[in-house]
Design a protein around this nucleic acid. Structure first.
Lengths: 250, 250
DNA sequence: CCTGCTCGTTCACCCATGTTAACGCCAACC
DNA sequence: GGTTGGCGTTAACATGGGTGAACGAGCAGG
C-alpha cells in the first residue's frame, strides 16, 4: 500500500539502467498524482476517444483490445503493474483501439508535460523511457510471431512464459508461483483460439506436469519444459542489463 | 532519380503535419548521406547484431522477420520507401529480429545524432517523428488482430488493402494499380498460412473480380469490395490530417 | 538448345481447431 | 436454501487449412 507510486515501473526500468536517487525521486513524484480506479471489466479508454494522458498501471491488470465489426475481439496486449500504456500516444488524434481493465485497476495518468519533464532530467531517464516503448513494441512483434507461426499449445505456453518473465521483472512472482487473473476466454482472445480449445490445451499442459492452475493461482511446475514447448526465447523482452542477467545485480 | 532523398518520407509525414520549407530542407539534408544498397533477399541487419543507425528506405521494399528454432519464419512487418525502421532502436543492445531486403533496397542509415538534431528543429518535426513510430506500432497491432481473428481470405485481403493505402500515402500508386514485389510464399509468411493456401485465396479473390495480379503488377478491381471482405478500416494508419482526409489537401 | 531454378498451380488426403451444446461447480444474491 | 450467472469442462461432429507431391510456365545461364 505504502510502496512508492513508481515502485513497479522502477523495478522494470532497473533492467535497463541504474538511476540515481534523485532520478528515482523525480520519477516517483511525477507518478505521485492522485490515482484513478477503473472497475473490473470497464474501459480506461475507448477506441475513437481522443487520447488523454499516459496511463501508468499501479495495481491490477489491463489489456488492449480491438473489436471487428462482426464482434470478434482480439486482445492485442496485456499490461501489468508498472506498465506505461502508449507514451506519446496523445500525439495521435484518435485511439485506434481500446484499453480495458481485466481486474480492478489503479492507475495514474501522466500528462505529456510530465513525461517531457522526466525526459528532460537527463539522457538516462530519457533513454529509459525510449527503452520502455521499444520493449513494448518488441512484445507486440513477438505476439505477431506467436499468432502467425505457433500452434495452439505453443501459443498458450509462450504466453505463460512471457507473463512469468514480465511478472518477475516487476517483482510479482514468488518462485514460479504467481497470480494470473485471466479467464480461459481471455486467453482465447489473446491467442486467437476458442475458449474450448484453450481448455484442451490447458489440460494438456497440466497432464504434462508443466503447469498447475486453479482459480487465479498459477504455478509453472517446470519452467524449462514450458519454455521448450513454446520455443520461448526471452531476448525480446530486453531484460538483461548490459549482457549480465539481472539476477547478477542482486 | 533526382527526387530529394526524403521525398517519400516527406510525402508520408505530410499526412500528419505541414512543414515549413526550412524544415523540409533540414529533413532532406539529414537524409542526404551516401545511400547504401542491399541486394535482393539479403539482410540489412540480422538478429543478434548491435543496432547501428536507423535505416530509412529510399527505394525498394524491406521486411522484418523472425525465425523460430525449427525454421518456421514469420514476416513481422513490411517496409516501403519512406519508412523509417525503428527510430531509436539503437537504444536496445541487440536486434531481436532481422530486417531483410525483399527487392533490391536503396537506403540511408541515419545516426542517432541526426535523429536528435531533427527532433531539435522544433515541436512539429519532433512530433512527426513520434507520429511515425506510433503509426508503425499501430500497424503492428493491426497485424496482431489480423493473425488472431481473421480467416485466410480476410487476412490476405486486409494485407492488400493496407498496402494500397500505404503506397498511396507515399505516392506510389497509380489509381488502383501498383507494384507488389511479393511472392506468394512471402505473403504466406506474412499472413501465417502456407503458400498453397495463399494461392487458393488469391484465386478466390480473382474469381470474385476483386483483384488482378500478374507478376508484380497488381490492381484492385474493386477496392470497396476488397475492404468489405477484409473488414478493413484505415483508421489505424492515422493518415487523415486533422479530420480531413489528405485528398482534401491537394 | 538444353538445363536448372523459382514460382505459381492443382490435387488428394488428413488433422488441428472450430462449433454447438450440455453439464457441473461455485460464489453472489435474494 | 433456492436461484442465477460466470466459468471450466467434456463430447460429437464439421471444416478450414495444412501436407506432400507433382507439374508447368517463365527465365537466366552455359
Amino acid at each position: 500500500m505504502s510502496a512508492p507510486p513508481a515502485h513497479r515501473l522502477l523495478a522494470r526500468l532497473r533492467h535497463f539502467t541504474v538511476f540515481s536517487p534523485e532520478e528515482r525521486n523525480a520519477i516517483n513524484s511525477a507518478c505521485g498524482g492522485s490515482a484513478l480506479v477503473a472497475r473490473q471489466r470497464r474501459d480506461l479508454i475507448r477506441e475513437g476517444d481522443r487520447p488523454r494522458g499516459v496511463p501508468l498501471i499501479l495495481e491490477g491488470w489491463a489489456f488492449r483490445y480491438k473489436t471487428l465489426e462482426d464482434g470478434r475481439r482480439q486482445i492485442i496486449a496485456l499490461h501489468l503493474p508498472g506498465d506505461l500504456c502508449d507514451i506519446h500516444g496523445s500525439i495521435l488524434r484518435k485511439m485506434d483501439h481500446s484499453i480495458g481493465a481485466l481486474t480492478q485497476v489503479r492507475y495514474v495518468e501522466l500528462t505529456r508535460d510530465q513525461i517531457d519533464d522526466l525526459a528532460a532530467l537527463g539522457p538516462r531517464v530519457h533513454q529509459a523511457l525510449w527503452w520502455d516503448s521499444l520493449t513494448t513494441a518488441a512484445i507486440q512483434r513477438e505476439w505477431t510471431v506467436n499468432l502467425g507461426q505457433r500452434d495452439a499449445l505453443e501459443r498458450l505456453s509462450h504466453l505463460f512464459c512471457e507473463l512469468i518473465f514480465r511478472l518477475r521483472a516487476v517483482g510479482m512472482i514468488d518462485g514460479l508461483r504467481c497470480e494470473i487473473p485471466l479467464t480461459q476466454t481471455d486467453l482465447a482472445e489473446a491467442t486467437g483460439m476458442t475458449p474450448v480449445h484453450v481448455n484442451r490445451m490447458v489440460q494438456e499442459l497440466r497432464s504434462r506436469q508443466l503447469i498447475r492452475w486453479k482459480g487465479r493461482e498459477f504455478e509453472a511446475l517446470d519452467l524449462d519444459g514450458l519454455c521448450d514447448v513454446a520455443m520461448f526465447n526471452p531476448a525480446y523482452l530486453h531484460l538483461d542489463h548490459e549482457g549480465r542477467h539481472l539476477d547478477a545485480l542482486g
